[in-house]
Structure formats: structure tokens, C-alpha cells
Design a binder for these strands. Structure first.
Length: 289
DNA sequence: CCACATGTTCATTT
DNA sequence: AAAATGAACATGTG
């Protein structure tokens, strides 16, 4: 599930529940989820500190670690205080099944996106906060990662992420596709071309503008590539707007049909299920060409 | 038992 | 060099 809209929802969730409260404890239940760090290093980096701000590119979420006394940067500028101590960033990647939850006072459990009855299982890392809150990173399938980095820009660069798909401008998007040899679907999913589009929303954007996933990326007309840019951004923005709860997306969205009996929301024809770029791809052979 | 699942990375081939 | 392909990773579901 975690493509760009889900991770953006996690980012907002983190902002809402976990910022500006000192961390009192770090519990790692599955060390394998850690990338180039240890439980001890996380404890040293986090305990007694606060999470202060978040940043997201594509499907990657970074959370800045700072001292509890550090105040908001706008306030700081106006008072011309010393620059904040560089305490680095926590990074999270959600793999195939990752998500966040928060609980407090024993009962209230809030999940990062529409999944009301999630069990308390598969918590891999838990941050205990000074207000009694517990901030949980879940990852059933263990493809996700959590770790520390000192430099946010270097973190994104090392992963060769292209411009974020939620805000990529038309000129950049068009230029990237025009020089791309190969099929549309793999191009959209290439995180170095545009960051954040995964299997489901790639299919949706292609469906919404009537483009076949196997089309040559560089072979689109100006009109087609403009429409594709618009749909990529629109599909992602709409999904962010409903906090990545797919049940709230329009009925004419094709992602509701990802099952063997799938039919086109606009004509009722059976959808084709094929492999592009090594991923299962749903598309309408009538509407998309 | 098998096939398949939203992601990324790596090796191999074209 | 770029792009495609397939495997691997770990775990659960149908």
C-alpha cells in the first residue's frame, strides 16, 4: 500500500502525533528492520530528544531529531538565535506493508490511514514519548527500513530520487518522458524519473488518461504527455486528500477493480491483467491505447 | 501444495 | 549506456 499518498499520510500523521514531545524510550522488536544502525545507536540519538519536523520525497519519510528546547525556526530567525544543533534525521521506508500507529492512555489507537481494525501486531520499532504516547512503526513483511542519517539531502541523493510526483512541474515531467526509451508503465514507476508512483497509482493515472501501459514513453504526443502529467498529479493529490483511504476515491477509479473479475468502470468490459516492468498491470484494452 | 501481493535492489541479458 | 527481465528479500493469504 505505501506509495506516495500513503507515505504523505504517514508524514502528516507523524506531524500530528509525534512532534515536540521528548522521546523517553526506543524499543526495537525486529532488529532486521534497521538499516546501518542499532537499537543502542537509536537510543543514543533519540532519548531525551524530540522529533521536530518531517520531510518526504517519493515514498521516503525523514523526521528531524532535535533538542527539546529548540523552538520553531521562524521564531528563531526573528530572535537571531544560534543555529540548531545538527542531530540528524530518522528515516523510514514502508516497503510493501508498512504503516504507523499511535496509542495513548491504553486504549486509543489511531492508524495512519483508513484501516480501522488493524491488530497491534507487527510492531517493529516503537518510540515511547514523554506524554505517555507510543508511536509505532509496523512492517509485516520486513521490506521496510528505519535508520539514521546525518544529511537529508545526501540521503535523497544516494537513492537517486527524481522530483516528487505530487508536485513535479509539467516541463520537467515532459522532458523526462521524452528522453525515455521504453514503456510508459516502467517509466512511471522508475523512482529516478519521478519519485513516488508505485504499481497501483501508475495504473490509475494511465487509465484515467486512456494511455496503454506498453506505449513508448518518448512516443507520446504533446497532448498525451500533458494529460499524463495532469493525471499523475491529480490522482496522487486526490488520494492524499482522502488520507489514502481508497474507499473514498471516485467510483470511476479503476483501482477498485484489482481482482480477477475486474471490469472497466466506464464500459464494463473485462480489464486486461498483464505484466509490465515485472509488475501486475490492470488496464482496459478498449479505453487505453 | 501453489500463485500471488502495494517495493527496492541486484545480476544478467538484450 | 539504457532498458528489460527475473530473482531475491519475508510473510501472509487465497
Amino acid at each position: 500500500m505505501p506509495e506516495l499518498p500513503e507515505v504523505e499520510t504517514f508524514r502528516r500523521f507523524t506531524e500530528r502525533y509525534a512532534l515536540h514531545v521528548p522521546v523517553t524510550d526506543v524499543r526495537v522488536f525486529k532488529p532486521k528492520i534497521l538499516e546501518n544502525t542499532t537499537e543502542l545507536a537509536l537510543e543514543q540519538a533519540l532519548i531525551g530528544r524530540c522529533l521536530l519536523e518531517t520531510r518526504r520525497v517519493g515514498k521516503h519519510l525523514l523526521v528531524r531529531i532535535g533538542s527539546p528546547s529548540e523552538i520553531a525556526s521562524s521564531e528563531m530567525k526573528s530572535r537571531e538565535m544560534a543555529p540548531p544543533l545538527d542531530l540528524g534525521w530518522l528515516f523510514l521506508h514502508f516497503g510493501m506493508t508498512g504503516f504507523l500507529s499511535y496509542e495513548r492512555d491504553g486504549q486509543s489507537v489511531v492508524n495512519a490511514y483508513g484501516n480501522p481494525a488493524l491488530p497491534n501486531a507487527h510492531i517493529r520499532v516503537q518510540l515511547a514519548l514523554a506524554d505517555g504516547g507510543l508511536f509505532n512503526f509496523h512492517e509485516q513483511r520486513m521490506f521496510g527500513k528505519l535508520g539514521l542519517t546525518t544529511d537529508a539531502a545526501a540521503y535523497f541523493q544516494a537513492r537517486k530520487l527524481g522530483p516528487d510526483a505530487l508536485t513535479v512541474d509539467r516541463e520537467t515531467f515532459v522532458a523526462a518522458l521524452q528522453k525515455r526509451k521504453g514503456q510508459l508503465k516502467p517509466a512511471l514507476m522508475d523512482q529516478s524519473l519521478v519519485a513516488g508512483v508505485g504499481n497501483v497509482y501508475a495504473d490509475e493515472a494511465l487509465y484515467q488518461c486512456g494511455l496503454h501501459p506498453g506505449r513508448q514513453a518518448s512516443g507520446l504526443s504533446a497532448k498525451e504527455v500533458t494529460a499524463l502529467h495532469q493525471q499523475v498529479v491529480d490522482v496522487l493529490q486526490r488520494t492524499v486528500a482522502v488520507a489514502a483511504d481508497r474507499d473514498q476515491l471516485p467510483a470511476h477509479y479503476m483501482l477498485h477493480q484489482r481482482h480477477p473479475k475486474a471490469v472497466c468502470p466506464s464500459g464494463g468490459h473485462p480489464l486486461s491483467i498483464a505484466s509490465f516492468g515485472g509488475r501486475t498491470t490492470y488496464f482496459c484494452p478498449v479505453c487505453q491505447s
